[in-house]
């Protein structure tokens, strides 16, 4: 198996008035080339921080980062800023939730793509523009020639997100990091962009880490799923294992909360409480205060990760 991404013992802490607060607390991930991993979890669970750490961005934000991150065998955390920047442009593509944060509003989108190719691939401007045109066709932007000359603000949300995917894929990176790339889109547009990404990923053999809080979106695109809670991965396995036969009480609760049917049939299953304050984590299992299955050891001892089935692991004391 050739590995696109390997993260081990990743810990990230941000400085606050109360000292360093750990927000990612020992994350391990291995992603083979050409596979799609969905990173699921509620707001604040550490999904985006994990993703930003993969390309060395969190350390530069002033976070305290430890552990190891290897992209295509290269140790990212040991690289200097220039090499990290180069890695981001040429070997790792990044797609964000809000494309306006990544697209420069004062440049035409076509020029922005060409620029990436000139910088990272040593292409001429003409080659860059020709490739930009091909990329716009690839991401199914209609009237591509005309749209290449548009400024980001002149594109609709769906087209802007496609343009951003085009930029991320410009250098055909072996690894793509996508942070909620379809969350801000309308339902009929979201599914188009999601299926586009799924098709391109297959076609180009790109490994993808796809961050989302939407279980349906994960089911649509992921080979593997990892569920985060309070800075840790609490369950992982194939999409079928995690979404159809969840082991961890938190994953089960998330699936239980999916809105289905009508109010006249049954009240929705609620997950009581809210995620813990990372600066004041409860002792033992971080999920214990909200867990319907909690029992004696949960408030005392942190559960380790155990394998339930080949490739299916959960961090929980149940069934020990």
């Amino acid at each position: 198996m050739s590995v696109a991404l390997e993260v081990s013992g990743l810990e990230v802490a941000y400085r606050s008035a109360r000292g360093f607060v750990p927000v990612v607390r020992g994350v391990d991930l291995t992603l083979a080339k050409g596979r799609v991993l969905a990173l699921l979890g509620e707001s604040g669970s550490g999904k985006s921080v994990t993703l930003r750490s993969v390309v060395g961005l969190t350390a530069r934000e002033g976070a305290r980062v430890s552990g190891r991150v290897r992209v295509l065998g290269q140790d990212v955390l040991a690289m200097d800023a220039r090499r990290q920047l180069d890695l981001r442009g040429s070997q790792v593509g990044f797609v964000f939730q809000e494309p306006m944060t990544a697209l420069d509003p004062v440049f035409r989108v076509g020029d922005q793509i060409a620029e990436v190719l000139v910088r990272h691939r040593g292409a001429t401007w003409a080659e860059g523009m020709a490739r930009a045109r091909a990329l716009f066709d690839l991401v199914q932007i209609p009237a591509a020639a005309q749209r290449l000359r548009a400024y980001p603000s002149e594109l609709s949300g769906g087209l802007r997100q496609r343009a951003m995917i085009a930029i991320a894929l410009a250098c055909e990176p072996p690894l793509l990091l996508a942070d909620e790339p379809t969350t801000a889109l309308d339902a009929t547009v979201q599914i188009q962009v999601l299926l586009l990404l799924r098709d391109l990923q297959k076609q180009l053999g790109t490994a993808v880490v796809f961050v989302t809080h939407d279980l349906g979106v994960a089911a649509e695109i992921a080979d593997e799923v990892a569920v985060m809670y309070a800075g840790r991965i609490v369950e992982r396995g194939s999409a079928e294992q995690v979404l159809l036969a969840p082991e961890h009480p938190y994953t089960r609760a998330l699936l239980g909360c999916v809105v289905r049917g009508g109010y006249a049939e049954a009240p929705l299953v609620e997950l009581a409480g809210s995620p813990p304050d990372l600066a004041r984590l409860p002792p033992g299992c971080s999920f214990a205060p909200r867990c319907v299955s909690a029992f004696a050891p949960c408030g005392v001892e942190e559960p380790g990760e155990r394998e339930r089935e080949a490739g299916h692991r959960a961090r929980c004391h149940l069934g020990r």
């Binding site: 309308d186 349906g216 089911a219 649509e220 992921a222 079928e240 159809l244």
Partner: peptide, 25 residues
């Protein structure tokens, strides 16, 4: 109908094969 058909299920075995409609509003 397109709106209804655009909603992913949480079952990875029942994926949407093709977008129900194309283009943006």
């Amino acid at each position: 109908r397109a709106l209804f058909a655009s909603k992913p299920s949480v079952d990875p075995r029942r994926r949407i094969a093709a977008p129900p409609i194309l283009g943006d509003p």
